[in-house]
Amino acid sequence: MFDWLPRAASTYAHDIDGLIWLITAIVGVWFILAEAVLVFLIVRYRRRPGHPAAYVTGDRRRQVAWILVPCVAILACDLIIDGASAHVWEKMKQTQPKPELEIRIEGRQWAWIFVHPGPDGRLDTPDDVVKMNEIHVPVNAVVRFALRSSDTLHSLWIPELRLKQDAVPGRTIYGWFEATRTGSYGVLCAELCGAAHGMMRGTLTVDEPDVYRGWVAAEASPPPAAGAASPATTSAASTSPAAPASTPATKGAIAR
C-alpha cells in the first residue's frame, strides 16, 4: 500500500503522525459533510417550474440555530485539536529529556556542519568529530542539538524524524530527538537560503550504539588536521558574506 507519510523513525514521530491523522479525520468528516450538503442543496433546489423560492432571511431564532449549532460543534472540534496539538508540542519543544549525546549543528550556504563529541563524550575538545553534511547518532539515544547559522536562515529538516527547526544567525536554538530505527535518512534544508538552497542536503546515519562508538573512535583518531575545519574557527570567517561558498569543501557539497 502507498504510505502517505515517510516511515517514522523517532520517538515523537508517532505523536505527530497520530496528530495529523486525528486532524485529518476530524476535518475530513466536516469536509465531506459540508460538500455533501452543498451538492445536495444545489441539486435539490435547482430551478424548476412551479417551485418558487421561499422568503427566508435567517433572522429567526430557529434559523440562527441552524448556523450556530454546527459552529459550536466546530468550536468543540477546534478545542480537541488544540488540546491534542498543544500536548504533542509540549513533548517535542518544551521538555528536554536527559540527553545522552550533544551535537552541534551549523547551517551555512550551502552545507550542514555537524560537530560530534569525540570519544571523550564532550564538545569543544580536540577530538571532536566535525563532518560536513554527515551526521551519525546511536539508535534509541536522546540527542540534544544546538543549532546555529553562520549566514542566512536555514531549516534543519529530517522528514523521517518529523524534525524541522529553523537555524537563525545570531542565535543558538536547542532541540532534541531520539531516533528509533537504524538506517540512513536525508537531511534537507527547508528554508530558502540562496542559490543552491535546493541542493543543500546531508545524510543522517542511525547506528547501533557500538557501531556508532566505533565510528567516532575511527573518525577521531586520524590526523589532527581534521580539526582545522572546526566551525568554531571557520564561522567567524564565514560571517563575511563576500565568499560564503569559497571553501573547497563547500563547493564539493554543491556539486554533489
Binding site: 496528530l19 495529523i20 500536548h87 504533542v88 524541522k164
Partner: peptide, 8 residues
C-alpha cells in the same frame, strides 16, 4: 496546529 506544522 503547531505540532502538525512542524512536519508540514
Amino acid at each position: 496546529s503547531a505540532a502538525a506544522d512542524i512536519y508540514i
